[in-house]
Amino acid sequence: MSFFTADADACKRCGACIQECPVLILIADKETGMPKMRTGSEDVCLRCGHCVAVCKTGAVSLAPMPPEGFVPLEKELAVTSDQAELFLRSRRSIRCFKQRPVPHDTLASILRGADWAPSASNRRPVRWVMVEDPNKTQQLASMVIDWMTTLRRDDPELAKKYGVAGLIAAWRKGQDCILRGAPHLAIAYTDEHTDWSDVDGSIALTYLELAAHAHKVGACWAGYFIHAVRESEALREFLGLNDGQHICGAQMLGYGRYGYHKVPMRNGLPARWIS
């Protein structure tokens, strides 16, 4: 099977696959009107699958992406714009968690949801560490406090900037302001730091957060943890990350202790319209 093929009997010559190709490597054959790939363009292809996914008749195939890997869209499951807007508005950052762990299959499904996050040039560089054991999540929070304690000793000015004194004091009183008692933690990282690493990571983490919301699982960005893991060798070693790997961010995960019954107000989105 060649890299890109189109079934002459099934193809309607509509040109959708050609126009949707992000890197413009598909063209129409001058004689038949059939879509084809420019000679020698295999290495340019992003493997995004747009050409296959946009084809109504299933005429197009891409060798690196077997046909069985494409799942038909079930239009009856599509949400309305009002439903989508309510879903987005109802998402809250959860900081009070039940101690009941989220089942493994649910965590795996949430993580799968992040696999469809867009990334620059479809490189999909984001990798994940999912801390499933609540005891290890708590251990990580304790290690962040250890890092903060050292920071307060070695770099008082930076420690003051992060406000670590209050966080350490709260921890000693039994209050976890680092990971908020969340049973789970998802960490996104890339194997190297590029110009787009943090953007790709933030998009993937947002997809993860929305997937969690769809499963009725609470999520919240773990800001203090992100700062700490970028600086602490002990934390990186615990997570199995080497020095060249870049931490994009982390989300606390768990069932929310409380439910929300209203959507908070907003003051209006600042925007300039150019018409």
Rank of each mutant, 00 (worst) to 15 (best):
V144K: 00
V129F: 01
V23I: 10
L269T: 14
H213N: 12
T206W: 09
W116Q: 09
R13F: 11
T5G: 10
A84C: 12
G166Y: 03
I274E: 00
A28I: 07
D115M: 14
P35K: 02
G163M: 09
E209S: 12
G58N: 07
L86Y: 11
A169F: 09
L111C: 02
D195F: 03
A170E: 02
M143F: 03
R92T: 11
P264Q: 01
H215D: 06
I94V: 15
S119N: 07
L88W: 15
L241R: 01
A53C: 05
S41E: 09
P67G: 05
S121V: 12
Q99N: 11
P66L: 06
V23A: 08
L253E: 00
L185P: 11
R266W: 06
G166C: 01
G256A: 01
V164L: 07
P67L: 11
D29F: 09
M143C: 08
A10W: 09
R180D: 02
K12R: 15
K160L: 05
P264E: 00
P183C: 00
M65N: 04
R47N: 14
R91A: 12
I274P: 02
L73Y: 09
T206P: 10
V229H: 05
L77S: 15
R95L: 01
E231P: 00
D9W: 06
G268D: 06
K161N: 10
S2F: 13
A120T: 04
A117F: 10
A120M: 12
V71I: 13
D195W: 04
A170C: 03
G244Y: 00
P22I: 08
H184C: 05
I187W: 00
H193N: 12
L73I: 15
R38G: 01
F225N: 02
K136Y: 14
S81H: 15
E132Q: 10
S275E: 11
R127L: 08
E74V: 11
C51R: 01
A114R: 02
H246I: 00
A186D: 07
V129M: 07
R89N: 12
K216N: 12
T106C: 09
T150F: 06
M143E: 14
L24S: 14
L241D: 01
P103N: 05
Q99T: 14
H261D: 14
D105Y: 09
C21L: 04
D200E: 03
M130D: 07
G174N: 05
A53V: 10
P64I: 08
K75S: 13
V217P: 07
D105H: 11
Y255S: 03
L239A: 04
L73G: 10
C51D: 02
G201Y: 03
Q175S: 12
S121R: 09
R13A: 13
E231D: 03
G163E: 04
Q19F: 14
L24N: 14
A211S: 15
A165K: 14
H50A: 11
E192C: 05
M148G: 09
F70R: 00
S109N: 09
D243C: 04
L205W: 02
F3R: 10
G113M: 03
E233V: 06
A204G: 03
G69A: 11
P183S: 03
S232M: 05
D176F: 00
L253M: 09
V60E: 06
R257T: 04
M37S: 11
C14P: 08
E157I: 08
T137L: 02
C220W: 02
Y224S: 04
K30W: 10
A78G: 14
H213E: 11
G174A: 01
S2D: 15
L158N: 10
K161S: 08
E42Q: 15
